[in-house]
Each structure stands twice: as structure tokens, then as C-alpha cells.
Design a protein around this nucleic acid. Sequence first.
DNA 1: TGCCATAGTTAACGCCGTTCATCTTCCTAA
DNA 2: TTAGGAAGATGAACGGCGTTAACTATGGCA
Lengths: 253, 253
Amino acid sequence: MNGVNYGNSVLGSQGSSRLSAPTRRERLRTSTLSEIKEEARRLLVTGGPDAISLRAIAREMGMTAPAIYRYFDSLDALVEALAGDLYAELSEVVATAKQDAGDDPVTQVKAMARAFRGWSVAHPAEFALILGNPLPGIVAFQESCDEEHHPGVEFGRPFMETINALWLRERYATPPRTLMEERLAAHLEPLRASHGDQYPIEVTWAFLSGWSRLYGLVSMEVFHHLRWAVSDPGALFEMELHAYVDQFTSQKS
Amino acid sequence: MNGVNYGNSVLGSQGSSRLSAPTRRERLRTSTLSEIKEEARRLLVTGGPDAISLRAIAREMGMTAPAIYRYFDSLDALVEALAGDLYAELSEVVATAKQDAGDDPVTQVKAMARAFRGWSVAHPAEFALILGNPLPGIVAFQESCDEEHHPGVEFGRPFMETINALWLRERYATPPRTLMEERLAAHLEPLRASHGDQYPIEVTWAFLSGWSRLYGLVSMEVFHHLRWAVSDPGALFEMELHAYVDQFTSQKS
DNA sequence: TGCCATAGTTAACGCCGTTCATCTTCCTAA
DNA sequence: TTAGGAAGATGAACGGCGTTAACTATGGCA
């Protein structure tokens, strides 16, 4: 019956203040809202995704669980909002690393990859929430989200742009263009829908290939799936990064 | 107070039958045991890892929840046993694919990779349980398991052997040996503990690099982390497989 | 001043894992 | 053949969970 319950989108009945200082009510609301999410993150960090519970959050805040329903429609909605925040945080970390890396695309790629790994290793629980096994509630969210504004798109953009700059400069080696056109190009509509046709297929391939390699290695490290093989996953990571970047800078095949 | 509760390891007080026909009791026990795990898997498939509950299993079996404690010490122990079975199943699928692929290592690598993806895509919930975000109870299991008999070791063995055969034949390109010795070799004790020193560092690198690429791509597909980019992840997979194998067969750098 | 949306409460329902005391059934050892 | 004990299964209970419904207090605006 109630309207959708999220953020400060409640827009007080009368305009109150169109753009200037928010109402006292609004200030309190946003404050409580972020306190809830902070508490949820704390639980996430200490006990994993399943440890996030309305009752625990409320207890920690000196409230009762049903009160949280004034701010989120369900536990899933809360977790979803938290996931959105974390996605933005990670995106910004990566984007900042790129900005701080100077103008060389090779340096930029390395900086972004290291920043991604750094954040992930430092925040394994958060990584699990947004990039691991998606929870049942999150799956629906991902499917319902229209492709154009999917958080993954914004996250991948700086990678994509850098790989493109690299391509313009180096014309690095890729699988044969005919093969890529034939087997891959037909299935890239989703990506085209968000990035347009501005990138050649070589760039698209290099981006997807690189992202999957980065993701695979980092998530194996974060989830301890490398413990049986390597004592310091960072060394393996640097090795792989070297191999990936080398692909772009050595002479073409 | 009770002894550890798993499998048919209860060993009836008196020897009863050392090696021949198992007791009626034992037959019933193993039958119930596997029925519990089957029901658990059914719940896993239909509702994800969190849907596995003792009460639901018991309900479906016409029992009460506490009865299951005669067979498993806890829900975590049950899930852990199920994960072990699934690991074995996946390992066998991959090993069989290799056997059916003839003698050429390149063909073998492709067959194993495709078999791995095939099983994973066909059984996403099972994949999530054994290769995704580890549940809190599973983490302890992985850490307590002595490295030598870690299921991951047996799973990776056919890959490792094939990559080695490929190396003996092709002497494919890798990162410079000096770099690998310097940065990677010092951190491979866990892998050496299980496989011995029989493999040169080039093989180890190619194996770990390939496994992480395979894992990354497949888990992104299984977890729908590629939906925003690619409509048919299989095409991207074949592309990446091509690029990986090509690395081994084209002329050395 | 009166109103009413907003924030918060208590109580309850049905899930869950787990423990405990209890009962039945079956196998074995005397 | 029978007594005893182990193994299997039960019902009741505890505390925790998400969620709903009915209810109370309060702050800000007409």
C-alpha cells in the first residue's frame, strides 16, 4: 500500500524547500537511513552477508526491528541499497586510481587493476556481497535493472576507455578479427546498448578478457580458493598482470 | 559427547562383517544418509544454499528434524558433506572428458575446460556451493583440511598433467623464467606439498593462470555478472579458450 | 489549536537450528 | 531364549529470524 520506501525520495507533502535547506524531518530521516546502512555494513563485515539481520541492526541502534520498515520495504531492499553504495565506493576507488596514474594507458591499467584488488582484499565481505555469489534477492534486482544504468557499466567504463586508448596507440595483438566478428560480435548487444558503437571489437574483446581474468584471480584470492596452491596470492596477481599487460606492449603476432 | 557423526564410519561395536555384506542396520543407515543428501541437493537447486534446512529435509522425508542429528553433527556438517560429493562429481566429469578426448594435450585442455563450463552452467546452485562465496561453515572446513588431500588438488591434477605434457611438447611462451623464479617461486610451497617438485615453474604458471581465467569467466557467467555485456556467454568463453590455447601453439616470443 | 503524516512500539505468526528427555526397535551377548 | 543396551526417532522447548498488524506518541503545518 505504501509508496516505495527508499532514500529521501519521500518528497514531503508540501514542497517545503525545493532545493535549499532540507527540513528537520528530512535531515533526521537521511541520518537514520545512513546509520542503518552503516550498521548493516558492520554486520556484513563481522559475520558475512547472512549476518545482516533487521533485528540485529535495530538492537545495535536502540530500536525495534519493525521500525526499519519505515525506511526499507524489506531486508532484501536494505541489502540491495547497501550493495549499491558499495558498488559506488569501489567504482570511485578505481576511477581515482586511474586519475592518479598519469597519462600512460599501461600505467593506468596497472593502477586500476591493483586498486581493484586492493579494495577487494581489504573488504572481502563487501566484495562477496556485490561481486560474489548473488543472493536470491539481488538476482531480481540485477535482472530488473535496465541495462543502460547498470552499475557494472559505470564501473567498467574507465577500464574500457583505457583499453581503447591503448588500442589506438599500440594496435596490440588479438584473436583474428574475422573470428571475433564471426563468433563474438553477434552477442554484444547489451554492451553496445550502454557504450554505443564507439569501440572496435578488438577493444571490446581485450576489455572483457582482461576483466574476467582480473575478476577470476581476485575472487579466488578473496574466497580462499587459492590457499591450496599459493601462499601469497599477490605474487600470482602481479605475475598475471604482467602477462596481461605484456600482451599489449610486445610486438604484434 | 557423541563420536563424530558422519558416513558409515560408525563401525558396529563388534566387527559383524569385516568386509563382506554390510549389516541390515548399516544398509539402512547409508540409505538414509544418501537420501538426506539428495534432499539437501534438491533444496539447494530450487532455493539456493540458504534454502537447505534440516526441517525442510526432514519434512520432505517424513521425519522430524532432530532425527537428522543421528547422521550429521549439524547443518554445517551436512552441507560440508554435500559439498564434498559435488566436488567429486565435478572432478569426475572433468577427468572423464579428458579421457574421452584422445591423446592430444590441446584437445584435452579444450575438452576439460568445456566440461567444466558445461557442468557449472548446468548446475549453477551446486557451483555456487563449492566454488562460489564460501559459507561461514565451509571456510573452517577448507582451513582445517590438510593440504595434501584437499579436494582442489585432485580436481586440478588432470589439468596440471595436461599442461605439463603440452610444455614437454611445445615449450610454449611464458613470462621470463627469471621473473617467475624471482617473484612467484617462493610462494608455491602449498602446491609443491601436494604435487611435489615434478613440474617446472613454467607449467605451474600456465596452470594457475589458465585455471584462474577459466574460473573467472565461468563464475561470472554462472552468477550473471556478464549479463550487462554479453547475451551469449558461451561465445565469449570459446573466444577466451581460443586465446588461451593459442598461447601454447603459436610460435614462441 | 487541531489535525495528520511520520516514527516508533508491542504482540503475534511461522520459519529456523539445536538441545533434552523420552520412547521404540532391533541386535547381540550371556 | 531372554535381558540389556545401542541406535533410531519423537515431541517439547529455547532463542533467533523476517514480517505483519494494531496501536501510540510526536512534530510540523493549516
